[in-house]
Each structure stands twice: as structure tokens, then as C-alpha cells.
């Protein structure tokens, strides 16, 4: 019974949103679609809150049980409390809104940027490991193309043969674009069919 109810709700709401998208001229349908999407936005916000509470619960337990690397969990819980306190303070004293902005600008953004900056190093390490352990023709092709692109992109004044910039442009405009479009078409078809499978009830990625 629960299963049939879940299935009916999922298909009905999918149908409302889909028809509302394709037939914007029907006011009742458009309004219904907007209302359903509003519910979805509210549910997403609640889900985020539940997720944050769950994360806190996990890390608080890790800290209390003194599990491995519990120090990180403590930092996470403290950071949450400080951010939450700053947010509440901003609500009560609106001019203090800059406190949350300050934390975001000078803590969150630099930390995430630092992590992203490590990507270049991680890519080199992963590339070297790939060359070491996976020695087939695709690896060598990958390496050769990477080197051509890197040499072709050098901006400082060096005596680089003209063939490298030419090869770089050709690789970027012909094989890369062709491959990207091929992957995009495949992904688009996969996306549509996954959606239709759920829409027709053939796939039920939800509990009972």
C-alpha cells in the first residue's frame, strides 16, 4: 500500500511539473506547477537542516567517544557553533550582518580556494601514478596530448616551434570538441531516460 502510494505521488507530481512546463498557457496548471516547485524548495531547505543536524550528531559522537581523529570533529562542532552564533547575532542586530559575511569571505572562501589550488598538484601526482601503473597506449596518448597542450600554452618568450601552438589549437578545436559533444549527447540521452524510467514507475529510487 505504501509502495503504491509513493509511486502514485511521484508520478502525479512529475506529471504536473512536466505538463506545466510544456503548456504554460494553462493558468491552473502553471499555478499548480509553481506551488509544487515551492513545496520542493521548502522540503529542500528542511532536508538541508536535517543533513546538518545529522552531521553534527555524527561528529559530536566521534568527539565524545574519542574516536580516531576526534580533534577534527571537535573543530567542526565548534566552527558550527561559532557560525550559528554569528548568524543569530546578525538576526538580532541586523547591522552586524557583516560578521557572517566576514566569516564567509575570510574563512570559507580561502579554505575552499586552497583546496582547489591543490588540484594542480594532485593532477600531476595522479598522472604520474597512472603512467607508472597503467602502461597502455591510451596512457601514452593522454601523456603526449597533455605535454603538447602544456608546451603550446607557454606564454613566456621561448623558442618554441610553431607546430606546438598549431597542434594545441587543432586539438582543442577538433578532437576535444568532437569528444565533448559525443559525451554530452550520451549524457543527455542517459539523463532523459533515467527521468522517464522514474516517471513511468519502472525505477523507484525511494523507500516504502
Amino acid at each position: 500500500m505504501n509502495y503504491q502510494l509513493s509511486l502514485t505521488v511521484a508520478i502525479s507530481f512529475g506529471l504536473i511539473v512536466l505538463l506545466g512546463y510544456f503548456f504554460p498557457g494553462f493558468d491552473a496548471l502553471t499555478l499548480l506547477r509553481a506551488e509544487v516547485l515551492r513545496w520542493a524548495a521548502i522540503l529542500s531547505a528542511v532536508a538541508l537542516l536535517v543533513g546538518v543536524i545529522s552531521l553534527l550528531k555524527v561528529h559530536f559522537s566521534r568527539f565524545m567517544d574519542q574516536k580516531q581523529e576526534w580533534g577534527y570533529s571537535l573543530v567542526l562542532v565548534l566552527a558550527f557553533l561559532v557560525t550559528f552564533g554569528a548568524g543569530m547575532f546578525s538576526l538580532i542586530f541586523p547591522p552586524a550582518e557583516t560578521l557572517v559575511n566576514f566569516m564567509f569571505k575570510y574563512v570559507q572562501v580561502p579554505v575552499e580556494t586552497t583546496l582547489a589550488a591543490l588540484l594542480a598538484v594532485l593532477l600531476i601526482v595522479a598522472g604520474m601514478r597512472m603512467v607508472r601503473y597503467r602502461r597502455d597506449w591510451t596512457t601514452w596518448l593522454f601523456l603526449a596530448i597533455s605535454l603538447i597542450l602544456l608546451v603550446g600554452m607557454v606564454t613566456i618568450e621561448l623558442q618554441i616551434p610553431d607546430v606546438f601552438p598549431f597542434l594545441r589549437d587543432w586539438i582543442m578545436t577538433v578532437p576535444v570538441v568532437a569528444g565533448t559533444r559525443g559525451i554530452l549527447i550520451g549524457l543527455a540521452l542517459g539523463t532523459i531516460i533515467t527521468g522517464l524510467r522514474i516517471f513511468t514507475g519502472a525505477d523507484q529510487p525511494y523507500g516504502e
Partner: peptide, 8 residues
């Protein structure tokens, strides 16, 4: 990395 995917 998202509340909805976490709950599902």
C-alpha cells in the same frame, strides 16, 4: 553533499 540526496 545535499540535504535531499542525503535523505533519499
Amino acid at each position: 553533499a545535499d540535504g535531499t540526496s542525503f535523505l533519499l
